[in-house]
Each structure stands twice: as C-alpha cells, then as structure tokens.
C-alpha cells in the first residue's frame, strides 16, 4: 500500500503581534514546527504500513527551511520525502494549494491513501484535504478518529461532536485525522540522523507541470485585504492581587458569596 502524508510547517506559537507601522505580522524570531495533527497523520500512516506493508511518502509545500519538518517525518519512519518549493507557489490560498498538492500526488503516482491532519494551526481552514480529494476526483473522510484498511476500502470513525459516524470509502481516498486518533511516535535524534540517507526530492512548479495561472497568488481567488487586532471589549475586570495564596482566598470568598461551595 502506498500512502502519501501531507505535512505543513506552522509557527510554533500563538503569540503573534502586528507591526504597528506596517500592519503586517511580525514573524521575526518565531520558530516553526510540524503542524501537530500532521504528526498524527504520519503516525496513522506508519501503523498502516506496519500492518499492510508498502511505503509512506511525506509531501510538504513551503520554503526550503521546511526540510526541518521533512527530517522529522523521515526520523519518525517515513520512507521518502518530497518538498514542493518554488517562488511562484508563494501566496497560495487553499484552492491553489490543493491544485499544487494534487499535481504532486499525480506525479508521485500509484497512491492508495492520502492522509492529512484535520487542520493546520496557523490557518485553521480544514479545507486542504477535502479540496485535494476534489482535485483528484476521489472520495474523502474528514474528522477521522480511527482508521483501518481492508479489502480496498478505508474504514473510519468520524467524530461529529454529539455523534460518531462509522463510514467507509473506496481506495484511493483522502482521510483527514483528528489529534486524538493516536499518540505520534517521537523522532529521536539518532533516528533523524539515520534518516539523512533516505531519499529526498525537491520539485518546482515546472517539475510538476503546473499551469502557472493555478498556483500561488494568481491561482488564489481569496486574498487578505486587512489585518487588525480585535477590539477590546469593555468588561471591567476586577483583578485579584497579592500572592497566589491571597488570590485563592479571595476566589474562595467569591465562590462562597455566590453559594457555589
């Protein structure tokens, strides 16, 4: 079985600020990391490979520094890594991204299963997985909290909040996984070092044979017109003071007054 896992590099923080002069995000000094749920997707792929054999390829679109994410993926146990990196890919929204990722899937070829994290922590869209499925014209299962493959079908539980749906889709298919689906294994430094020998390929837009009007900024119908900080609301917050002990006493008084004890 050939599994492709799509992995994104995201900022390792929620603590972003706007540059008051330019209105742009201040990215200086912000470290990046693998999107957490993408590690769950890799873990799911590795477990499926352990059971059914085959290979796991990890695909990343991004700047050359995204190779750090690839190293981690290979260190976890993926067999091969592809980096889609080219200036014209920049500024892609989810439509352009899904086109580019689908072109890479086609070029790799022979895939049975495409795995994604349910969403990425930077954009929060959860759109890329289903959009890639649409680009390739294959079925999808989003929000998977379990995954198994049998007789050419992928079986998942979908976590819908109040209900859980048991569904199946015929391979090849896209599955997007929740954070709770498994505990990703750790990529030990020694394994990351050993994984240096694994094959790594970088592809440009020309390598993928992309229609240049469908990638990057020209291929992105959506754009950001304005970025701003949320308005502060005017709740009069009463701040507790003193030591944690003093604060605890004040809180306990409050709970008692509200008859919550």
């Amino acid at each position: 079985m050939k599994i492709l896992v799509f992995v994104k590099q995201v900022p390792d923080t929620d603590d972003v600020k706007l540059d008051p002069k330019t209105g742009n995000l201040r990215r200086d000094g912000v470290k990046s990391m693998m999107n957490p749920m993408d590690a769950n997707a890799i873990e799911a792929a590795l477990q499926l490979r352990e059971k059914h054999g085959g290979s796991v390829c990890v695909v990343t679109m991004g700047l050359p520094m995204a190779t750090e994410v690839q190293k981690k993926a290979l260190g976890m146990g993926c067999d091969e890594a592809y980096l889609l990196s080219d200036r014209p890919f920049g500024g892609a929204d989810t439509l352009a991204t899904s086109y580019t990722l689908a072109k890479a899937a086609e070029k790799i070829g022979g895939y049975d299963l495409l795995l994604f994290g349910r969403l990425a922590t930077d954009g929060d869209t959860a759109q890329t997985g289903p959009a890639v499925a649409a680009q390739l014209g294959i079925p999808q299962i989003s929000l998977a909290s379990s995954i198994a493959v049998e007789d050419g079908w992928v079986y998942c539980d979908r976590d819908l909040g109040d209900t859980v749906q048991r569904v199946r889709a015929k391979l090849p298919a896209v599955v997007t996984v929740n954070g709770g689906i498994n505990k990703p294994r750790y990529a030990t430094p020694i394994n990351i070092m050993r994984a240096q020998k694994k094959p790594r390929t970088t592809w440009t837009a020309a390598d993928l044979g992309c229609d240049m009007t469908k990638i990057g900024t020209p291929g992105s119908p959506s754009s950001t017109k304005k970025v701003f900080e949320p308005e502060k609301r005017n709740t009069d917050t009463q701040y507790l003071t003193g030591s944690p002990e003093d604060m605890a006493r004040a809180l306990a008084d409050l709970l008692e007054n509200e008859h919550l004890l």
Partner: peptide, 10 residues
C-alpha cells in the same frame, strides 16, 4: 488567525 489574537478581512 493565530488563536484569535489577530483578525483578517478576507
């Protein structure tokens, strides 16, 4: 975006 610290008009 970014945990809600920033809002954007798309």
């Amino acid at each position: 975006g970014y945990g809600g610290k920033i809002l954007a008009h798309i």
